[in-house]
Amino acid sequence: MDEREFDDFYTASFQRITGQVYAMIGNRDEAQECVQEAFVRAWAHRRKLEKAEHPEAWVRTTAYRLAVSRWRRTVRGRRPADRAVGPAYESAAPSEAHVALVAALKQLPEAQRQALVLHHIADLPVHDVAREVGVPEGTIKARLSRGRAALAALLADEEGLSHA
């Protein structure tokens, strides 16, 4: 992967992967930082990335592993400034529905949440989700089924509370 190809890949996929990791972990800032770090590692290991069948999956998996590490969370407070992403700016505030969805996702077991995000947000077919997560397709189907049911119940509860 040469510089131009990497730059195109980065520009095209940064926001998308960040959104997916955000949905998985429920923390937008952490998702953005981890995706940024994952892209740095991607360039450092670009020969490995060239051999990867799905470079975007490689970056997403790396970012996700960084994000879920408790260790990483503990060092956030003292990370050198040059490792941070670029300056933030405000845009439209998230809707109530969006906040409710993120809150509901966070209440799901991690494995169900990961399966739902990869299948429904990253739009990966079940066999690709299974390959990325490293479990059989049947397991992913079960996680999706249970995850959808749990999510529907959580959103219904939230809707009931907001109407009450």
Binding site: T18, V85, G86, E90, S91, H98, V117, L151, A152
Partner: peptide, 23 residues
Amino acid sequence: MRDPLDELENFSTPGLTMNPLPA
């Protein structure tokens, strides 16, 4: 009742947007 699949498939990241580092 909201359909969770619709919610998921229309998921976006509004609010605070960060400016990624240049490539």
